[in-house]
């Protein structure tokens, strides 16, 4: 089990980044960006979890607690991620209105390679 969480994290990270770079469809790029950002949530949250630990609430009979701070940080990061995705999608809508396409090469083609 040891490094399982890290392997998953790295896989998601690389996969997300690859989609952003390799795909020309603006929506798919945003999906890739979402996966990339999500992998970071795992990077933070996984080390904060102790096996057998409970939620950090003082109660009789429990002595092992998970670290709450990474969860709180990632709550913020999730909000940021949602905002980024929403703004990105809004931009894609406007781009589609202006260009009639959401394929990167078609859009660049219409600008004469600019």
């Amino acid at each position: 089990m040891g490094h399982f969480a890290y392997i998953v994290t790295i896989f998601l990270m690389v996969a997300g980044l690859f989609i952003v770079i390799a795909r020309g469809n603006l929506i798919k790029k945003l999906i890739g960006l979402g996966i990339f950002q999500t992998s970071v949530y795992l990077l933070y949250v996984a080390p904060g979890k102790l096996l057998g630990g409970t939620a950090p609430i003082l109660a009789a009979g429990y002595t092992v607690y998970s670290n709450p701070l990474p969860h709180v940080l990632i709550l913020t990061a999730i909000v940021v991620g949602v905002a980024t995705l929403a703004l990105g999608l809004a931009l894609v809508v406007r781009i589609r209105e202006a260009y009639g396409s959401i394929e990167e090469d078609e859009i660049l083609g219409k600008e004469g390679g600019a």
Binding site: L17, V20, L26, K29, L30, L33, F36, Q37, T84, L87, G88, L91, V92, R94, I95, A98, I107, L108, E111, A114
Partner: peptide
Amino acid sequence: RALVAAYQYLIMGSI
């Protein structure tokens, strides 16, 4: 083209 510029900046900036 401002839209495309903003979108590209959004992708690069978020990365």
